[in-house]
Design a protein around this nucleic acid. Structure first.
Lengths: 299, 299
DNA sequence: GCGCTCGATAGTTTGCGGCGATGATCGACA
DNA sequence: TGTCGATCATCGCCGCAAACTATCGAGCGC
């Protein structure tokens, strides 16, 4: 029964019988039969069928919610029992926005010291994708902005506040200042994240509020690309304080606080709002709370 | 998989492999194998076995919680789909305390007018049993006191307040009074519910608070027995106002409010705290809220 | 020590689940 | 309009797993 529900979840996600079957590791007729059987047992059509997949019926959407819940609970139960056997073990999948990637180590390192049986899989994704992956149970947790764009149904643990700095080399304009304004920055050749990243949208928003417009001379979705360009001394960028510190820029690179306003945005851990959580997710949430205390203490 | 979980739930309840198997409609070896398989899949022992059932392991208790949840969700899903097909249909099982039995009709009658496909099964039980049945999913809802003894984990909808009256025949002491005190009552030959009923404990409690003791001359767990004795005119009793009104006592029977104090206890509908509820339970809760408004309006 | 209760085990049969092959339907395109 | 490709349903077959009956063995009470 539960496996049929998994078929159904896969079908709803893939929107294609063949691919869903592949995901589930069965052949297409098997999956077809499974869905059909589910429909018979429940006595309602779940899938709109033409000669191809055409979406779920309203009842199908309803059942999808239950299926996710039942399958999720079943997984959680198994994981709880595995934790009872060998202590915490398994893989935690995390999706994080690029500017938070460097922070992940602060979470994973102390976690692994407490729970050596746990391994991690960390993906760099946009904030939109983070939420989408979380919604589809493709990751166990995400790291993204908590206070800017709407999150949807998740639970969250605030970790730290992003504050923004101009990263630029000695000799460039403003390089001797101890602070600059958003308005001033717009004159510089900037390398920034692509606009699908929320960090970029935040920066654009602050620049717009300062009444200026900026056309970055370089865009990338990779912090590594930005970092390597900055190191040449020929490019400037805008980066969160924490991130700049992690990179450890050395001379002649300068990091100058940006004011008017001294903007900040909260970044935190998010997880699906399921109660109770899997032992792994719960432990990660606990770790995140400890880390947040740590940040608060050193501020 | 889900059926194995049902085996496990039945076993935990019956504490006996044979009986649990019977409840599930399978033979004992089948249930045995099912439990064993569950233990293998989860990798932990769930049941303490000597040559007989000796309780669940701690992990077993944990799994039992998940099993209840998963099986419950699965049932709710099916019922939701059945409701989507034929509108609301099926059977609602209600357990109610004896003094509330007459009120059930005020709930069921308007409910059936809205949802003719639904049938009811109403049991008379003690308040303790009501909660126990609810906890074991043997009834869908209960009607009991909300404010006297602890309820445990349930959700509740207050329906009405019980106020107490002396029921007695003309010619008996106090039959001409327009009110009597708890202390005065203790002199009369009373027929009351048995002490396993919370109503009786409430009455005893008020009598004790008035500093008197009572030895009822007749005890029963059936309101019908009490009612028929009262009708002879030879016996008196203490009854909630609502109930006495429902019985419609006629001359020479009098109903006299009892004061010092003018005690009241809230009676309401209770259901298992599962979110969301089955469509049937949800509809019943809605009906109960409407009925509560009705009571408030006519007070 | 005997018998009884309860759960585990063995052996057999049934049925469901999965696969490969094939059919039906619809849309795209010449 | 005819053909092709894609997609899902259907059919027949096979193997395994689950359920049943019958039996065994371990405790426990008398």
């Amino acid at each position: 029964m539960i496996d049929k529900l998994e078929f159904f979840i896969a079908l709803a996600k893939e929107e294609h019988f063949g691919r869903a079957a592949e995901v589930c590791g069965v052949t297409q007729p098997t999956l077809s039969a499974g869905i059909k059987q589910l429909e018979e047992q429940l006595g309602v059509m779940l899938v709109l069928r033409g000669s191809r997949f055409q979406g779920l019926t309203p009842e199908g959407m309803q059942v999808l919610g239950w299926a996710r819940r039942i399958v999720g609970d079943s997984r959680t139960m198994r994981e709880e029992m595995r934790a009872a056997r060998h202590g915490l073990s398994g893989r935690i999948r995390i999706a994080a926005i690029p500017t938070a990637l460097a922070m992940v180590a602060r979470l994973t390192t102390p976690f692994r010291e407490k729970h050596p049986g746990v391994t991690f899989s960390v993906l760099s994704r946009t904030s939109i994708e983070v939420l989408s992956l979380l919604g589809n149970f493709d990751v166990d947790a995400g790291i993204t902005y908590l206070d800017n764009e709407p999150l949807g149904r998740v639970i969250s643990v605030p970790l730290y506040d992003e504050r923004y700095q101009l990263i630029t080399a000695v000799g460039n304009p403003y390089s001797d200042r101890d602070k600059v304004t958003w308005a001033e920055i717009s004159q510089l050749p900037l390398c920034l994240l692509t606009p699908d990243m929320q960090n970029r949208r935040i920066i654009d928003q602050h620049l717009a509020e300062a009444g200026v417009q900026v056309r970055p001379t370089l865009e990338s979705n990779s912090m590594i690309v930005l970092f390597s360009h900055i190191r040449t001394g020929k490019w400037s960028s805008i980066m969160p304080l924490n991130l700049a510190e992690t990179f450890g820029f050395s001379e002649p690179i300068r990091a100058i606080p940006i004011v008017e306003p001294d903007a900040s945005h909260t970044v935190g851990l998010v997880a699906a709002p399921r109660e109770p959580h899997t032992p792994l997710v719960q432990a990660l949430l606990d770790e995140a709370m400890a880390l947040a205390d740590d940040f608060r203490a050193h501020r």
